[in-house]
């Protein structure tokens, strides 16, 4: 699998189709992101287990001249994030080329990922998406009595040290200026930040763009299960609008495009658990 990716990257750089390939590299300091520009340099390329690169790709593009063409070694979630960003005019997807890498079944389980593959798989084999119904954490945080769930989330958020890691790491988190910083919704200089004004504001802001990459959760030092926070909204968007962020490059989020055209049933968000049981796993 690594050799396949290396070959593709080498070809893209060697033929001058792409100016750089963003991936991971193994060096004397261990694994780290790397922008490969020299086709002879790909010996250190690595496909170490998940390191979301979409956000870094955006910054790289921003740092490079306008004509720079960037290939990115993408997992499914990376590609979906880049597509979302393209839709929202944050990046010019014409400058991008995806080298698609499929994730293993184990990786999908770790990420609670339903679609552990990019739109085109250049390396790796499509594995089965994770089965959420058996997942303990999902059950505790999303599938029990409302009072119990609220307590669970409150306890989790009480650990927050306001590192802003969730926001910094999220590839689709892009408001400028960021509402969490303005001191209006969230008190400055205090931890733990208020659960509703900090965490739920963030969750709502990315509600229809979340591609379930888990970068937020990976960046959280205190183990708040942030991925689970977004799951019900993703499920609801799927159920009511058959919409999944990052999967269709031409279709805008229903939350942006459906002010007039409500679906027959309307959108209701009271019972996360129903939507979870019925629709996840497809």
């Amino acid at each position: 699998m690594l050799d396949t990716v290396r070959k593709i990257a080498k070809g893209l750089l060697g033929q001058g189709t792409m100016d750089g390939v963003l991936g991971l590299a193994v060096g004397d300091g261990g694994v780290s992101p790397r922008l490969f520009e020299d086709p002879g340099d790909l010996g250190s390329l690595s496909l170490a287990s998940k390191w979301p690169l979409a956000k870094i790709a955006v910054t790289v593009l921003g740092q490079c001249p306008d004509a720079y063409r960037l290939a990115v070694v993408c997992r499914g979630c990376d590609e979906r994030a880049l597509i979302e960003l393209g839709k929202r005019n944050r990046i010019d997807t014409r400058r991008l080329h995806v080298i698609g890498v499929a994730c293993s079944g184990e990786q999908a389980e770790r990420c609670l990922c339903q679609q552990p593959w990019p739109s085109r798989v250049d390396a790796g084999v499509r594995a089965q998406g994770a089965d959420l119904s058996g997942n303990d954490q999902v059950r505790q945080y999303l599938d029990s009595d409302r009072g119990v769930r609220l307590e669970k989330w409150r306890e989790a958020f009480s650990r927050c040290i306001k590192c802003y890691g969730c926001r910094n790491a999220c590839p689709v988190c892009n408001c400028s200026p960021c509402r969490l910083e303005d001191g209006l919704w969230v008190n400055r200089g205090e931890i733990a930040p208020d659960m509703f004004s900090f965490h739920l504001t963030r969750a709502m802001h990315v509600a229809d763009a979340c591609v379930a990459c888990g970068a937020c959760q990976d960046a959280c030092p205190v183990g708040i299960p942030l991925m689970l926070l977004q799951l019900p909204m993703r499920a609801e968007l799927h159920r009511s609008y058959q919409y999944e962020a990052g999967t269709e490059s031409e279709r805008h989020s229903p939350l942006l495009s459906n002010y007039i055209d409500e679906p027959a049933g309307g959108i209701s968000i009271p019972d996360w658990t129903d939507s979870l049981r019925k629709n996840h796993g497809s």
């Binding site: 261990g30 694994v31 780290s32 992101p33 170490a48 998940k50 390191w51 870094i56 910054t59 790289v60 740092q63 040290i161 306001k162 590192c163 802003y164 890691g165 910094n168 790491a169 990976d218 960046a219 959280c220 030092p221």
Partner: peptide, 30 residues
Amino acid sequence: ILMVRDGKVVGTYPDRFHPVSRGALCIKGW
């Protein structure tokens, strides 16, 4: 992890595989 361009540090990222921080940073590290 520092992102460097044209002699300037333009970005900071956590190290996913670091034995202590394991992909996280605090507000000061970021």
